[in-house]
Design a binder for these strands. Structure first.
Lengths: 248, 248
DNA sequence: TGTAAAAATTGATCTGGGTTATGGCCGCCG
DNA sequence: CGGCGGCCATAACCCAGATCAATTTTTACA
């Protein structure tokens, strides 16, 4: 677990924010001037834990992470997936106690930025504050869509919907190919995200393979039939709010 | 549907914000100076609809409202409940297209405040901006908790958890009595929020009554055994982030 | 105060997804 | 290079909650 100061990491944050807002040169430079300490984490390692009161935020640079919570005798619910450019605990700036945990799913590189510096940044750059706020609102929109999937979609539809979502999110930050993208997680992870068991995830995946909607080779997802996949899950990308917009 | 200008409505907004942040006299006054148009709506009436691009936010003054989305052939998922003091479409300030609808559940009084005035307010008062941001973050925390309920709790646990949540939220704005609070919604509404059928909601309610956890008279919920209710649902109020805090 | 619609209740039956269990594959480490 | 642990796969059986179908109670309003 080496710990180094790495300003270059912040270009990932600039890229992410520019995917949802328009930044001025000055704003871009202010972000790049943030201090950041980069670390490499092993798969399955906690970054922040339920109940913590963090004094820094974490920026994912490489690999996948997830928010999750454990209830009962070890039942896990994954609340969101996170990829390069995400700041999954941005809410800790305004909500001081973590109500869930954050962990890596794969080996991952993450950068840590102190709250103090982020607060100063948003105090001096309202445009950046608006972009961050917007980012947390898109996050909430994704929670809502997951709620709909859990409550009112079948396992098959829900999973198809998730694949559509992940593909578009990865594409938006340049991490997807043509109808194919990395999916470096296990079936257990998928199950815990979808509110299913690993056994049933396996059954549904088999079905989707049989109907030639997808293939899953190693750790990459290939979408063989985007139209069908998005149709069976009634996928409407509006909720991802991917169009670039002026912050103010 | 009378339409009048009613500055007095804004004291509800001040009260709500003061339940999650500390406001200065100047900030309080700035909020009270907002323009607001008040209307009385019938139960089941849409306030904003999926796909709209609103130019104002709505503040609930009386009655209950909910966010919801319809999928498939009329399946409804309720995403959140809203009570007096809530601004359920605050996110429309930064996310321009609605990805869900907002409707009344009971007869309700709501006030409308133009985006332009809200934007000016938060531009001039960073403390208010922070309080609003925090409010949307608590919203997201509630979505996460609902996700956990849908994914990993039984119907019984999930419903018990919801009752604990609603009671505390109503209490926080002075709308609950001693272990009793209004619950002016139908079993169908409850089912659509919990991702169940009305039939099963009825059976679970019966069970909860039989075990003397609650009683449901008319439109008020009486919690007969708070400790048991919160225990069976592993209810931990942290995620509501109700403690009052300085915004900055 | 009658009466019609909305809401709650209950029973019978069915099914999507859970549970339990077992075996195969593959990569890693000793 | 052999054994062990993580992950994937599949089979057999089970159950929480869905579906379908009435019936009763409450509410709203003429």
């Amino acid at each position: 677990m080496p710990s180094t100061s790495d300003t270059h990491a912040l270009t990932m944050l600039v890229r992410k924010l520019e995917s949802i807002a328009i930044l001025s040169d000055e704003e871009r430079q202010a972000i790049l001037n943030l201090p950041a300490k980069t670390r490499v984490l092993q798969p399955g390692q906690d970054i922040v834990h339920d109940g913590d009161k963090p004094s820094q935020c974490c920026l994912i640079l490489k690999g996948w992470a997830c928010r999750y919570k454990i209830i009962g005798e070890g039942k896990r619910q994954i609340l969101s997936f996170h990829i390069a450019g995400d700041v999954p605990d941005l809410q800790s700036l305004h909500i001081h106690t973590m109500d869930h945990s954050l962990a890596t799913l794969t080996e991952a590189t993450v950068a840590f930025i102190p709250h103090d510096n982020l607060r100063e940044l948003i105090a001096q750059h309202p445009g950046i504050a608006a972009a961050f706020w917007r980012d947390t609102l898109v996050d909430a929109a994704i929670f809502r869509e997951w709620l709909i999937g859990m409550g009112r979609r079948s396992a098959y539809e829900h999973m198809a919907h998730l694949f559509c979502e992940l593909y578009l999110k990865l594409q938006a930050v340049g991490l997807a190919g043509s109808y194919c993208c990395p999916l470096p997680i296990t079936q257990v992870d998928l199950a815990d995200a979808l509110g299913l068991t690993n056994v049933h995830v396996n059954r549904v995946l088999k079905q989707m393979r049989e109907q030639s909607l997808i293939t899953l080779r190693g750790h990459t997802l290939v979408i063989e039939a985007w139209d069908e996949l998005s149709q069976v899950s009634e996928f409407d990308p509006t909720y991802l709010h991917l169009e670039k917009r002026a912050a103010a």
